[in-house]
Computed example of a mutant assay.
Amino acid sequence: MKKALILFSFLILFASTGKAQTVLPAQYQELVKKLTANLPKSANLNQKESSTNSTSLIDFAKSMLGIPYRYATSNPKIGFDCSGFVSYVFSNFGFKVPRSSVEFSATGKVTSLENAKVGDVLIFTGSNPRVRRIGHVGIVYSIDSEGIKFIHSTSGKAHGVTITEFNEYYKSRFMKIVTIL
């Protein structure tokens, strides 16, 4: 059983790195194809790590719910503005991210709402959706049949770190979404 597990791990390792065809003997190549046939095309060894990182990232962000909004601040003892909150959360996990909401549009990899994942960064206009200039950011908190929820620091009604539905108001302000994890 131990040998089978080691062989299986070895096969998955090389299949996920794309080297199965050139590294494995021909007799194992068919086995690799069968074992990996049902894996998503993007499956690789970092997929679990990314999932764990997004869970840890959201848990950390959630621990700051209720910290007050404070313009131009990224200090949990004083408060956060939107980009201060997002940059503080990502920086805690070793990511080098910008401090301003405008700079987030040039960070990470642009994706679509249909391909959004927990941990992605939503980029919005400022509070006036007619002025199509970046002015707000938040982190995708959850995605389910009800839609997307995101965690952010808002100067609005909640006046601090809160979880908000990606509702019609925020859809009208939506500019883009980027993946950093």
Score class of each variant (00 low, 15 high):
1 M>F: 11
2 K>A: 10
2 K>L: 13
5 L>F: 10
13 L>S: 12
14 F>Q: 13
16 S>V: 06
17 T>S: 14
20 A>K: 12
20 A>E: 11
21 Q>K: 15
22 T>F: 04
23 V>L: 14
23 V>S: 01
25 P>W: 01
26 A>S: 13
30 E>G: 09
33 K>T: 14
33 K>R: 15
34 K>F: 04
35 L>R: 06
38 N>F: 08
38 N>D: 15
38 N>W: 00
39 L>H: 02
40 P>D: 11
41 K>W: 12
43 A>T: 07
45 L>W: 09
47 Q>K: 12
48 K>G: 11
52 T>N: 11
60 F>Q: 01
61 A>S: 03
63 S>F: 06
63 S>K: 04
64 M>F: 14
67 I>L: 12
69 Y>C: 09
70 R>W: 07
72 A>K: 04
75 N>T: 13
77 K>G: 10
78 I>M: 09
79 G>Y: 07
80 F>L: 03
81 D>I: 06
84 G>L: 01
88 Y>C: 02
91 S>R: 15
92 N>A: 13
93 F>Y: 13
93 F>P: 03
94 G>H: 10
94 G>M: 10
96 K>S: 15
97 V>M: 05
98 P>C: 08
100 S>R: 10
100 S>D: 11
100 S>K: 10
101 S>N: 11
102 V>I: 12
103 E>H: 01
105 S>W: 01
106 A>M: 07
108 G>K: 03
113 L>E: 02
113 L>P: 03
115 N>M: 03
116 A>L: 02
117 K>Y: 05
117 K>R: 15
119 G>Y: 00
119 G>A: 01
119 G>P: 01
120 D>R: 05
122 L>C: 04
138 G>W: 03
138 G>Y: 03
140 V>C: 03
142 S>G: 10
147 G>N: 05
151 I>R: 00
152 H>A: 10
156 G>P: 08
159 H>N: 15
169 Y>T: 08
170 Y>Q: 02
175 M>K: 08
176 K>H: 02
177 I>R: 01
177 I>F: 02
